[in-house]
């Protein structure tokens, strides 16, 4: 137990001071207690979320039997997947664009690209609502085309994040490699595929994970762009929480939390803890 080894506390060992540990512990308790309680009570054999009545999986069965909840989950994952793929492509292009070229109005392009990150979600949601209403975006299309409006809205706020990550990754690229490739006869495309892309890869993975989580997480913008037949998981949970709290929501939420943990684990494996810390 190295943690409790008795060694005099050095002046900078702030983390070994008792009150500091207490503070961090309390903060983590504050952050995690609600989530843990939610997860534990998804297995509770009682309609009320208060007293432990025994272990059950019936709310998971119920959640899976609730076709609208499952549909919402499938919609959310589909949107997140589509939005991630397109965001990564657009974000990679945008990152390379800003990293590689000098061109007129570059500052303006850079500024506009950071706007979807700064503009409050509610304003972007409103803009998407008005936009799709104004151009009479077709509704009632067969699945998955009916998700197009939400997906487009998600890409708009996801890809600037990817661009940011890719650009900061490209900063460590040695341009001489590119020149060498071209000198040796590689075409523009070959250079991109064989030299730039491999260097960009960690940035692309980090960007993809970020885009996927952002898309899966989004409530406000989806709330404004979704129609009655295109409900996503957060929108569905919102209406369930609004009207009646059921343990089904706990069960569905637990599944999503586990998915988040799995994604984080993947990110850890790919980049290491330090890499993740740097992308935020």
């Amino acid at each position: 137990m190295a943690l409790f080894k008795r060694q005099p506390i050095a002046p900078l060992d702030y983390t070994r001071k008792l009150w500091m540990r207490g503070w961090v512990g309390a903060t983590l308790l504050f952050l995690y207690a609600p989530l843990l309680v939610l997860m534990v009570f998804s297995f509770n054999d009682s309609k009320r979320n208060v007293v432990w009545k025994g272990f059950t999986l019936k709310y998971y069965e119920k959640a899976f039997a609730n076709s609208s909840l499952v549909e919402a989950m499938v919609n959310s994952l589909t949107i997140a997947l589509l939005a991630t793929v397109i965001s990564v492509v657009l974000g990679a292009l945008a990152g390379v664009l800003l990293w590689r070229f000098r061109f007129p109005f570059k500052g303006a392009v850079e500024g506009v690209m950071s706007l979807p990150i700064i503009v409050p979600e509610i304003c972007l949601g409103v803009a998407m609502l008005i936009f799709f209403a104004k151009i009479d975006w077709p509704t009632g299309l067969p699945w998955p085309l009916n998700l197009s409006a939400i997906t487009i809205a998600h890409i708009t706020f996801c890809f600037p994040f990817v661009a940011m990550v890719v650009r900061s990754r490209m900063a460590s690229f040695n341009r001489e490699q590119e020149e060498a490739a071209k000198d040796l006869g590689a075409s523009e495309w070959e250079t991109f595929r064989d030299i730039l892309l491999p260097h960009m890869k960690p940035g692309l993975i980090a960007g993809a994970l970020l885009a996927f989580t952002l898309s899966l997480d989004d409530f406000v913008i989806t709330f404004f762009t979704s129609g009655p037949d295109t409900v996503t998981f957060p929108v569905k949970v919102y209406s369930m929480v609004r009207f009646s709290v059921t343990p089904e929501v706990n069960a569905a939420s637990t599944i999503l939390i586990l998915l988040t943990i799995a994604l984080t684990a993947v990110a850890l494996k790919v980049q290491g803890v330090k890499g993740i810390a740097e992308t935020h």
Binding site: L38, F41, N49, T213, F219, V241, V249, S253, L256, I276
Partner: peptide, 24 residues
């Protein structure tokens, strides 16, 4: 690294779920 991950995990967790958990 683990402390960092501990702070980041809630950040990656769905906002609505976190709000709902706190309400519960």
């Amino acid at each position: 690294p683990w402390l960092l991950v501990a702070i980041m995990l809630p950040f990656w967790t769905n906002l609505l779920i976190r709000t709902y958990a706190l309400m519960m």
